[in-house]
Simulated scan of single mutants.
Amino acid sequence: MDFLKMFSKNSKSSKNVAKERLKLVLIHDRADISPKFLQMLESDIVRVMSEYVEIDEEGLDVKMTRTKRESDGCSVPALVANIPIIKVKDR
C-alpha cells in the first residue's frame, strides 16, 4: 500500500475494508473454492498469458465475486481478473 494513500481522504475506512474482505470470504466459501485453488488458477492464467504478452505481475489482481446471470438473473460466482499488460510479444 502506498504510504501517502493511507492519509488521503479517498482511502477506504476500516469498516469498508473489513466488509469487502468478508464478502470475498463468503463468495469463496459459497463457490467452494479454496484460496489455494484460486492461487493455482491465477498461476495458470499468468503462465498461459505470458506466452503472448508481457504481464506486470505486481499489478495482477484475480478474485472471486458474484454476478447475475443474463439468462435468468440468478446470482452466480464469477472470476474477475485485472491483468496489466506491459506489451504484446512478437510472434
Score class of each variant (00 low, 15 high):
residue 81 A to T: 13
residue 62 V to S: 08
residue 79 L to E: 05
residue 68 K to L: 11
residue 27 I to R: 04
residue 1 M to W: 11
residue 41 L to G: 07
residue 5 K to W: 11
residue 41 L to V: 14
residue 71 S to H: 02
residue 68 K to Q: 14
residue 30 R to C: 03
residue 52 Y to C: 11
residue 78 A to Y: 01
residue 10 N to L: 03
residue 11 S to D: 03
residue 12 K to R: 14
residue 89 K to D: 06
residue 41 L to N: 05
residue 45 I to W: 04
residue 66 R to P: 03
residue 76 V to C: 02
residue 73 G to Y: 07
residue 21 R to Q: 14
residue 75 S to Q: 06
residue 37 F to M: 13
residue 34 S to H: 09
residue 66 R to K: 12
residue 36 K to E: 15
residue 57 E to W: 04
residue 64 M to Q: 03
residue 40 M to C: 03
residue 17 V to T: 10
residue 17 V to Q: 12
residue 43 S to L: 00
residue 8 S to G: 14
residue 36 K to W: 05
residue 75 S to T: 12
residue 88 V to P: 00
residue 53 V to W: 00
residue 47 R to F: 11
residue 51 E to S: 08
residue 50 S to A: 10
residue 10 N to T: 14
residue 77 P to A: 05
residue 23 K to L: 11
residue 60 L to T: 01
residue 2 D to M: 06
residue 66 R to S: 12
residue 57 E to C: 02
residue 88 V to N: 01
residue 7 F to I: 08
residue 55 I to V: 15
residue 49 M to G: 08
residue 6 M to P: 06
residue 51 E to W: 04
residue 91 R to C: 02
residue 47 R to S: 13
residue 76 V to M: 10
residue 11 S to N: 13
residue 13 S to C: 02
residue 11 S to W: 05
residue 18 A to D: 14
residue 64 M to W: 01
residue 13 S to P: 05
residue 32 D to V: 00
residue 37 F to G: 09
residue 75 S to C: 00
residue 65 T to E: 02
residue 21 R to F: 10
residue 72 D to P: 03
residue 75 S to H: 10
residue 90 D to I: 02
residue 53 V to T: 02
residue 12 K to E: 13
residue 86 I to A: 04
residue 84 P to T: 09
residue 59 G to D: 03
residue 81 A to H: 06
residue 67 T to I: 13
residue 91 R to I: 06
residue 31 A to P: 08
residue 60 L to S: 10
residue 13 S to D: 12
residue 36 K to V: 11
residue 72 D to W: 09
residue 9 K to H: 07
residue 49 M to K: 08
residue 27 I to Y: 01
